[in-house]
Design a binder for these strands. Structure first.
Lengths: 334, 334
DNA sequence: TGATTAAAGTAAAACGTTTTACTAATTCAA
DNA sequence: TTGAATTAGTAAAACGTTTTACTTTAATCA
C-alpha cells in the first residue's frame, strides 16, 4: 500500500495542494484560509492518518530536524547515559538525534561526518578526536552549528561544554596526598585528546605543588583499542613491580580492568592502597569497599549542550562561541 | 557556501546529469559510458569533494539505507551493547542505524514508529512493548521488514531473535535447588512483555517440577518507571520480612538495586544466601563475591538480527518468518 | 549499398513537499 | 460609482536525485 501524499489529501478535500500545506504548517490563518476549509482538511488528515513525508520536506526546506551526535562508543556508560539525556531533551524540543560511535577511528569519524552532512542534519554534537580538524572546519565554514562536548580540539573555534578535568584530577591527587600517600600512579590511555591530557596535567601539577617528584614509571598509558586481557596484564605488571599506595584511573573502563587485577592478585583496597576512578560507574558504588570516583555532571552537560544548539538553531547569525566548563565532583566512598 | 550538486559536476565535466548519475552509481559500464568520460567525471568528483545528497536520493528511490532500531533504554547496558553490535554490523554492510529509546512508554513508541516511517527507514528492529500491535501490523501490511528482538508480541507474526528466557530462568532456579535452597524469591518488573513473563514462567515451573510450593509472597513485582529509592525500599522490605535463601533478579538493574540493599543491611552473599541476576553486568564480575548471572548471547543475537534484516532487504518477496531462539548461559561465580 | 545493430550519451519526468507570485471575488472608503 | 484593499485561494517552480525512453553517430552485416 503506497502511503498517502499531500496530493491525496488535497483531492479528497477538493482544495489545492498549497492549501493543505498551509494548514499542515499552521500558516492557514496568516494565509487567510477560511475556518471551514481548515476544519474540513484537518478532519480528513486525522481520519486518513496522513503523515507528511519528511524526506520531501527536508529536500525542500534544507533542514531535517535531526541533530547528529558523534561519540566514541555508545556501549561506554558515560556516553550512553549522556546520549540518553541529550536525546530526551532534544526530543522534547522537537528534534531527533542520530548517534553513532567512532570507536576512536579517524576514518570512521570522517565517514560519520560525511554521512551526517549528506543527510543534512541541522546541527552536530561531537565528542571529537584528533585528526578530524579539517572536516570540522569545513562544517563550520558551511555555517553548520557544531558543538563539542567532553573533549575539544585546541585549534578549532567552536562552542564547548565539558567538565573541569584538570581540577578534578588535581583534587583527586590532592586527596591522596592528604591521606598521606606518596607513591601515586596514574593509569590512562594513549589517545591524544584534550580531556585525557588535562587529567594527566592535573595529576602532574598536583604532585609538583606538593613537593612529590613526578615519576614517569608510575604512569601507565594503555593503548586504546587493545583487548582487555592485555590491559589487565599491563596493569598487573605495574602493580606487581612498582611500590604504589594509590592509583588514579583516567577512565571508568580502565578502573574496571584495574579492579579485576586487584581481585585476581588478592590485593584489597584499604589504608595502604587507595583508588579513584574517573567517571563513575554502577560497579563502583556496589564494590566492597566502595570505589571513590569523579562524577561528571551528566545532566548539566547535556542540558548546556542542547541549550547552545537550540540557541544557534534559532538565530540565523552565529552567536559568540562559548566555553562552558562545569566542575566535576569527587565522590569519596569508604 | 552552498554544497555542490550533481548539476555542478555535470557542468564542470561538460556532460549531462544523467551521465554523472550513472557513473556515481556504478552503472557506467552497463549504460555504455566511455572510459574517458568516466575517468574525467570521477576525477572532478574526487577533487571537488562532491557527496550526493542522500535526501534527494531517498526521495527518488524510496529507500534510505537506514535501519530504525527501537529499544527500551539506551542507557541500559544490555541495550547499549547490543546497539553497538548491531550498529557495527550494519555499518559494514552499508547501512546506518538510527536508534531511539521508548522508555517503556506506548506513546513514545508509537511516535518513534511514525517518525521512522516518515523518514522512510528501510527496516525496523524493535524490542517491542505491549500496546503497539496495531502500529506494527500496519508496518507489516505496508511491506516493511520488521524484526523483533529480545521480546515479542504474541499475536504478531514476524521474525524474532532472542534468548531462551524460559530455560535460562528454569536452570537458575534448578541451580538454587541443587544447592539445597528452599525459599527462593523472584524480583521482577511489572512490565507486561513476553520475555519477562517467560522468566516468571521458568521460575514457577522449576519450583513445581521439584516439589516446591509456589508462594506468591516471594515474588516481588517492581513498577517499571519508579525511582530507584523506592525500588530499594521494596526490596529491603522483602528481604527483611520473608525467610529467603536465594533470589533471582529478572533484570540487571533490579539486581543492582538488590545488591545495594544487601550492602545497606549488611547481609552477605554466601552459603545461606544466593543470588543470580538476569543479564550480566560489569559490576557482577567485580563484586565480592562474584554474582552469578545469566549471560545473553549478545553477539549472536545481533548477528542473527542483521542477517534476517539483510535477507529481507535483498529479496523482494517476504521470506518465511523465523524464530531464532538462542540459549542463554548461566555463569556461576564463586 | 542499405539496413541493422551497437555505442555513447541525453532530455525530461518523477519522487512529495514548500513557497512565491499570482488571480478572482468581495468589501470598503471617498 | 470607482478604485483600492482585503479575503480566499491556487499554479507552478524549486529542492537534487534516479530512471525511462529517446537520439545521434559509428560500426557491422549480407
Amino acid at each position: 500500500m503506497k502511503s498517502l501524499s499531500i496530493k491525496d489529501i488535497a483531492v479528497k478535500a477538493n482544495v489545492s495542494i498549497t492549501t493543505v500545506s498551509f494548514i499542515i504548517n499552521g500558516k492557514a490563518k496568516e494565509k487567510s484560509i477560511s475556518e471551514a476549509v481548515i476544519e474540513k482538511v484537518e478532519k480528513i488528515i486525522e481520519e486518513s492518518g496522513y503523515k507528511p513525508n519528511q524526506i520531501a520536506r527536508s529536500l525542500r526546506t534544507g533542514n531535517s530536524n535531526i541533530i547528529g551526535l558523534i561519540i566514541e562508543d555508545i556501549s561506554n556508560s558515560f556516553f550512553s547515559r549522556i546520549a540518553r539525556l541529550i536525546e530526551d531533551k532534544a526530543y522534547k524540543r522537537g528534534y531527533k538525534i542520530i548517534y553513532s560511535s567512532t570507536e576512536n577511528s579517524i576514518e570512521k569519524a570522517k565517514e560519520l561526518i560525511n554521512m551526517f552532512k549528506s543527510r543534512k542534519v541541522d546541527a552536530y554534537i561531537i565528542s571529537p578526536i584528533k585528526g578530524i580538524e579539517e572536516d570540522v572546519k569545513m562544517l563550520l565554514e558551511d555555517g553548520n552549528p557544531v558543538i563539542f562536548f567532553d573533549r575539544k580540539l585546541t585549534d578549532i573555534n567552536t562552542s564547548y561544554v565539558g567538565a573541569d578535568h584538570f581540577n578534578a584530577s588535581y583534587q583527586s591527587i590532592q586527596h591522596f596526598i592528604d591521606q598521606g600517600k606518596k607513591n601515586i600512579a596514574l593509569v590512562t590511555t594513549d589517545i591524544n585528546v584534550e580531556q585525557i591530557i588535562e587529567r594527566y596535567d592535573g595529576y602532574k601539577k598536583a604532585l609538583e605543588d606538593h613537593g612529590i617528584k613526578y615519576d614517569e614509571n608510575l604512569v601507565l598509558k594503555i593503548h586504546f583499542n587493545q583487548e582487555e586481557s592485555e590491559t589487565i596484564t599491563q596493569i598487573k605488571e605495574l602493580f606487581d613491580n612498582k611500590k604504589i599506595d594509590a592509583v588514579l584511573f583516567a577512565t571508568n573502563y580502565l578502573a574496571i580492568s584495574g579492579l579485576k587485577v586487584l581481585k585476581k592478585i588478592n590485593k584489597t583496597i584499604g589504608d595502604d592502597f587507595a583508588v579513584i576512578a574517573y567517571d563513575d560507574h554502577e560497579a563502583f558504588e556496589l564494590h566492597t569497599p566502595g570505589i571513590s570516583a569523579i562524577q561528571q555532571p551528566l545532566e548539566e552537560i547535556a542540558e548546556n549542550v542542547i541549550k547552545l544548539i537550540l540557541k544557534q538553531l534559532s538565530t540565523k547569525a552565529k552567536p559568540e562561541n562559548q566555553e562552558i566548563i562545569i566542575p566535576a565532583k569527587l565522590i569519596i566512598r569508604d
